[in-house]
Design a protein around this nucleic acid. Structure first.
Lengths: 267, 267
DNA sequence: CGCATCATTGAAGCCCTTCAAGACTTGTGG
DNA sequence: CCACAAGTCTTGAAGGGCTTCAATGATGCG
């Protein structure tokens, strides 16, 4: 998954920091695979349109674990795409607590939520070392105007987000901690699979899990231990390793339909 | 506000039920004012486009308080607009509890959430007697394809929804009951004002408020009494009457920016 | 005037939070 | 390579906000 942190240092060629032994960002072809897959999932059928969109990614940047990809404040006129790593959209409350709204994986748009709305209090942070691609917003608008399918795909993406939010709201209000955490883990298993990552490690810390589920870190810890006890997660500390996917699905009463884009506009 | 329930009976002319003394639906011109205003708020600048959209509303229907406007199950190929009354998008859980996702006022789209996504478990109910307008989905798609501004407006509408959901999530997770209920009341005051309803009555029952905030009806009741105690709401039972709007805003620490569409795409 | 819905009140209890302290892991610098 | 620092995980105990249950009062509509 490439989620482990590696020593980084400034590269002579591309003048940006990246892990030793990896190529410069500029030279990395295929880095936008995840973006292409995302667009296809959103219903952009023609490869030419997908490619045209991918070509818009001209600038790439590495972000170190823990740093902000998108800061609060005045929005820039760019659209940021996560190409590698894990990030989260979050807001820090007055009392210092953090709410994670969504966790983002390669292919996800980081800051399109600010495309029209004045939500300047929401930031995006890198949960692991990340690589992002930057697209000028004007170019997005231009290509969307030319290709209705791309415009539609962006709308679909927003709808999917509504869907995920709705599920999160249900979870927070109606489900007790065990079911709630199991639900979130299930969502992540499915989403990781959807982008071709078939690992049994969920790349989240217990603290991130707490901020995402609205539980305290202490209670998340105790609940994780319950999930280990029943054999859903591995007993090893530090890290979330799924042992029994079925057990998790059962506990969460998980129904993945709210994530399913294939059924879109097929009624 | 016309939210009070009136005696209704089948009308000879239009063969649909509607309150005594009101005109037949077919004859009501101006009934789509709220829809027109909504479209303008969403950024459709040209009146011709607004009118063209409004013309698509050919069929109208009255829904009695308590009945479903949109039922769960197979979606129909229509887009429903609320023209009069108050409705809510909701889901009934396995345990019988109800979660209200959004409350809808005149001008709001009822079921566009099913436009692409397979969310067949979410229904829309009339919280008061309502009048809805029905538009064929094909015609929506057709007009959206012709006018990018309308397509954009629909996308904006979805974004606004994300914004409201995000705020609701924050509320449910981080705010105690008093602040949470005050927040919701503030949101509704602002939204009602935005569509020209400048009343001090919030058209929700305590039970609806409970389902929308994720609190028990009992606790909502006790909290409402606290709000009456501090002079934010009137002391009369049955009904929510705002006495001190400022006090409510203060308690809720309310910041209406998340509802503000005027700032959209103005950065 | 009676029924249905909504509002109110009291009591018991639980899920989760907060506080606080210690154990473990990871990465960094000497 | 080791030691220290920082972050994460773990554990215990005390307490509080909210839920549930259950019963009664109020309101409005037919």
């Amino acid at each position: 998954m490439g989620l482990t942190r590696l020593a980084s240092r400034a590269c002579v060629k591309c003048s940006s920091e990246h892990p030793r032994g990896t190529r410069c960002l500029e030279q990395g072809p295929g880095m936008c695979n995840s973006l292409a897959r995302k667009l296809k999932n959103l219903g952009v059928g023609q490869s030419e349109q997908v490619n045209e969109f991918v070509q818009l990614v001209k600038r790439k940047r590495r972000i170190r674990h823990g740093e902000d990809i998108v800061k609060i404040g005045r929005p820039e006129r760019v659209l940021t795409v996560l190409l590698r790593g894990v990030a989260c959209r979050y807001k820090t409350m007055e009392n210092g607590r953090r709410q994670i709204f969504t966790v983002q994986y390669p292919g996800d748009f980081c800051d399109y939520h600010r495309h029209f709305l004045p939500q300047r209090d929401v930031a995006v942070a890198a949960l692991t070392d990340c690589v992002i691609g930057v697209i000028l917003r004007d170019e997005v608008e231009e290509i969307a105007a030319r290709h209705p399918q791309i415009s539609l795909a962006l709308w679909r993406n927003t709808m999917l987000e509504v869907s995920i939010f709705r599920e999160r709201l249900l979870s927070v209000v109606h489900r007790p901690a065990l079911e709630r955490i199991a639900s979130l883990l299930c969502e992540h298993i499915v989403r990781l699979e959807a982008i071709g990552i078939d690992d049994d490690i969920i790349p989240l810390t217990q603290i991130a899990l707490a901020d995402a589920t609205g539980l305290s870190a202490v209670h998340v810890n105790r609940t994780i231990q319950d999930l280990r006890e029943v054999g859903a997660l591995s007993k090893r500390s530090h890290g979330l390793q799924v042992v029994s996917r079925d057990e998790l699905l059962r506990i969460a009463k998980f129904d993945a339909r709210y994530l399913d884009m294939r059924q879109m506009s097929s009624d």
